[in-house]
């Protein structure tokens, strides 16, 4: 099949970008979306033009590198997958496909479809860990953890850090991302000693990085390739309020 592409091209963070038209011809429905872009790029290189830059790596939906907004939807029209798992059979012959980078002020465009998501790393650095020095761990089975607790933590821990939640949110809020990590670590018994510090520092880092606040539109949940549930944000609010309260009556 043949498609008309409108692709965001931008040389570097400083220069203005714009949509450029390309024809993708002879697209095989079994191709992945990124393979379709590979083929377009091979054609551009042969013509002596600069190929379209986009982040990708594992191409099996787990590394979180790919970050395309396809026809206005982060990771495209299919539910619960990352861009790399999207296949061309979901498009129709002759269709126009608009491809843009993830849009959010804290994710500046570096080139074409590549954005800088370094602020996600900064949020994790602020508190998204359990301080456990290598060598200090007790026997693994010394603390039984209810299956429901680990299952819930695992639901949240599946986050791949792609940033689709931020790109989908009208406020560019990172609360689903932060909530997922807070829920994962704060629900595990090993994470309890640091739960207050963790949520306070991560939320502070999130605000400092320029992510917006949540107004309950839940676009993040709809866009999430790992179907992280909205309740992780509720958990984060609860932990945050409790932490503020405990800090007020008994400062560290």
């Amino acid at each position: 099949m043949d498609l008309k592409l409108k692709v965001w091209r931008q040389k570097n963070p400083e220069s203005p970008g714009g949509l450029v038209d390309y024809d993708a011809t002879g697209v095989n429905p079994d191709m992945s979306f990124l393979e379709m872009l590979d083929v377009v790029n091979e054609g551009l290189i042969e013509k002596g033009e600069d190929p379209i830059a986009f982040d990708h790596d594992c191409r099996e939906g787990i590394c979180g590198s790919c970050s395309l907004t396809i026809n206005g939807i982060p990771h495209g029209p299919q539910k619960a997958i990352a861009t790399c798992q999207l296949h061309m059979r979901h498009f129709e012959n002759g269709q126009t496909v608009v491809i843009e980078p993830f849009r959010a002020r804290p994710f500046p465009v570096m080139k074409d479809l590549i954005v800088d998501r370094g602020r996600f790393d900064q949020i994790i650095e602020a508190g998204g860990y359990i301080s456990a020095r290598t060598g200090s761990a007790p026997e693994a089975n010394s603390i039984p953890i209810p299956k429901q607790t680990t299952d819930r933590a695992m639901d949240a821990a599946e986050c791949i850090g792609c940033g689709a939640c931020v790109a989908a949110c009208p406020n560019a809020s990172a609360m689903l991302f932060v909530g997922a990590k807070v829920t994962h670590l704060n629900s595990m018994p090993q994470g309890r000693p640091e739960r207050d510090r963790r949520v306070l520092k991560m939320v502070a880092s999130m605000e400092e990085a320029g992510f917006g606040n949540c107004t309950n539109t839940f676009e993040c949940v709809a866009a999430c390739p790992k179907e992280i549930k909205g309740e992780v944000m509720a958990q984060m609010y609860r932990d945050y309020v409790k932490a503020l309260f405990r800090q007020a009556i008994r400062p560290e």
Binding site: A132, G135, N141, I145, P146
Partner: peptide, 20 residues
Amino acid sequence: IIDHCVAQGIPFAREYGGYL
């Protein structure tokens, strides 16, 4: 390794009794 990873909060699969 397993001891350390559990201490880091890795949500390994568990049985209903709470053990790994």
